[in-house]
Amino acid sequence: MKILKLRGEIELLSGLHIGGGDDTMKIGGIDNQVIKDPNTDRPYIPGSSLKGKMRSLLEWHLGFVGIGDGSPFGSGLLEDPLFADEEKKRAAENFLRLFGDPNPESPYGITRISVGDCRLSPDSEGMVLSEAKYENMIDRQKGTAQHPRQTERVPAGVRFVYDIRVKVLEGDDEEALKALVSKGLELVEADYLGGNGSRGYGRVRFGNKTDWTE
């Protein structure tokens, strides 16, 4: 077994909101805060958010979503006629090797990819790390704003460092696994990360999507 590593920066092209799960309303404070490291009070991107977004978008890209019941793709769906195509079946098997299979008796095993929490880049120290943006609904008849609510965002221009690791076992198609990770990052770039993507939040750019090390 060997462990491959991919490390680079995530640049925010628009404000990013990944909620911190703090449901406490603070008088005069922001209603919907971003997640922060409790020790440093600095925002970060949870590895689970990035990994989950990559997996979800890859399932759409590879055509798995339409053949399931909405649950994460698993080996139980490999009997679908879609996978009579050997190339599609190989892609599905590599996907299961990379992200794991919900079937406990699967030959593909548990997830091989590990996505660490993305911490603030040293280049962004000293930058403004938080902005408050008002969100509201518009009364269609009166044209007035209703239910204003502040949402905290990490502003565009801030950078984070991502760290992805992949276990490669004997017999694996190493290049195919690396290509899946790179494609997943490209898909996140084309879509968005975090919440409120339909409002323009979460546009990002990944540096170094292909330069793996051991």
Rank of each mutant, 00 (worst) to 15 (best):
G76Y: 13
E86D: 13
L78S: 06
L98H: 10
E93V: 09
L50C: 07
N94S: 13
K89P: 00
E79H: 13
E86Y: 06
G74K: 11
R97L: 15
R97E: 00
P81L: 03
S56H: 15
V65E: 12
L58H: 11
R97N: 01
F95S: 03
P72R: 11
V65L: 10
F64R: 09
S71P: 00
S48L: 01
S49K: 07
G74T: 12
L78T: 03
V65I: 13
E93H: 12
P72D: 01
V65M: 07
F83H: 07
L78P: 04
M54Q: 10
D69Y: 04
G76C: 01
G70D: 11
G52I: 05
P81N: 05
S48W: 03
N94E: 12
G63F: 07
I67G: 04
A92T: 04
E59I: 08
L98Y: 07
F73I: 01
F73R: 09
G63V: 07
W60V: 15
R55G: 00
I67A: 04
G68L: 02
F64G: 05
L62W: 00
E87R: 14
G74L: 00
G52H: 02
V65G: 02
F64P: 07
P81A: 07
K51N: 02
G76R: 13
L57V: 09
S71R: 13
E93Q: 14
G52T: 08
F99I: 05
E86H: 11
A92H: 12
R97Y: 09
H61K: 15
L96R: 10
G52C: 05
H61S: 14
A92L: 06
E93D: 00
L50V: 13
P72F: 12
N94L: 08
K89V: 00
D80S: 13
S71K: 14
L62Q: 09
R90W: 13
R97H: 07
G66T: 09
I67S: 04
H61Q: 12
L58R: 14
K88H: 03
L98A: 08
